[in-house]
Design a protein around this nucleic acid. Sequence first.
DNA 1: TCTAATATTCAACACTCTGTGTATTTTTGT
DNA 2: ACAAAAATACACAGAGTGTTGAATATTAGA
Lengths: 192, 192
Amino acid sequence: MTDKDRRIRKTRQVLRQSFASLLAEKPLEDITVKELTERADINRGTFYCHYKDIYDLKDQIERELFDEFVAVIDGYGVDNLRRELRSVMTDVFRFLQHNKEFGTIISAYKTDSLFFAWVRSEIFRRGLSEWQRIYGFQDSIQWDYYLDFVVAGCVTMLQSWIQKGMRESPEEMGALSERFILYGPGEVLGLG
Amino acid sequence: MTDKDRRIRKTRQVLRQSFASLLAEKPLEDITVKELTERADINRGTFYCHYKDIYDLKDQIERELFDEFVAVIDGYGVDNLRRELRSVMTDVFRFLQHNKEFGTIISAYKTDSLFFAWVRSEIFRRGLSEWQRIYGFQDSIQWDYYLDFVVAGCVTMLQSWIQKGMRESPEEMGALSERFILYGPGEVLGLG
DNA sequence: TCTAATATTCAACACTCTGTGTATTTTTGT
DNA sequence: ACAAAAATACACAGAGTGTTGAATATTAGA
């Protein structure tokens, strides 16, 4: 069951393609193994050689996508905090731009996506913990809600950007999200 | 099928209770009509007299919860923008405090909840459109992302607050969310 | 090229849940 | 008390599931 075998790669690929096309038509909970394998022209029993069920397929896709994502982001060094923040955010938008086909999948799950949960807990918190250390912030209650507020806001920006067709450049979006995070939305819009 | 009949009220109530208890044990997609009616000690056929399927039950619960929510919020008049914002947010937290049993249900769906989607599109946008009118803000792109960022942040704060056991008072949370919205999280924490 | 491994196919299996229907019993509002 | 309505018990076909075992096809490596 190693992925060296061409048959395995081919089977998984066609299953993913069919899964993506089904997901464009109906919500995740309405997709059955039966119709997925029919569309993929794969024997139903074969599906169970690779995945436990539909949710397992979804999880594996998200997991691999996340690993690629981490590989992109991990190359970052820390020098200036603000510059790094904008660069990271820009790269996040860039990454999704280069993975449009999975972007559709991701945004279909909204914020219940495992992918976004991982981004939330690992990448963002990693960066923000550093941030917290530097600024020596202590009030853990406010800090918790700060994390929730900012991360949810950014994740939703990513999804909206995807759903609106990725009109703005990753640089624009990276800069905008940086300003939202640092100065707050109100300030950016001149409402403060 | 009016709700004047005591049997109807009783049946729906026990179905909702059982649904809530099942939702505490497993995700929504794993809950079947069969096990729900068994736990509720209701004939399975009876379920179909009231609801189309499990998702219909969920939607109706959220719909009714949302209607109560709107009734609470709708009493607000507009005088000072900032004061109203804090009051509204405080009342939102207060509302969830008085509906703990459904708070669990709501936060189980995360942000995919219909309830939160409605709060998002109706209540928040209503208030923020007024806000936009007053300040005469024109850049629609930034405005869109501003909406997404702030609303998602607030919704997530609500969920986190529920999941952490509603330790802080609604007044505290209302004030904190107001500051996040107006001045941005970074400013509040002294990071700006 | 040959072979051993293994991925896939195919048919079949028992099983669960669904949605619906019908006849019967119980409860309700008036 | 009576008619209407709701809940029940039961049956039914249909769909999907997860799993077998044997046959077939494809692969990697010698």
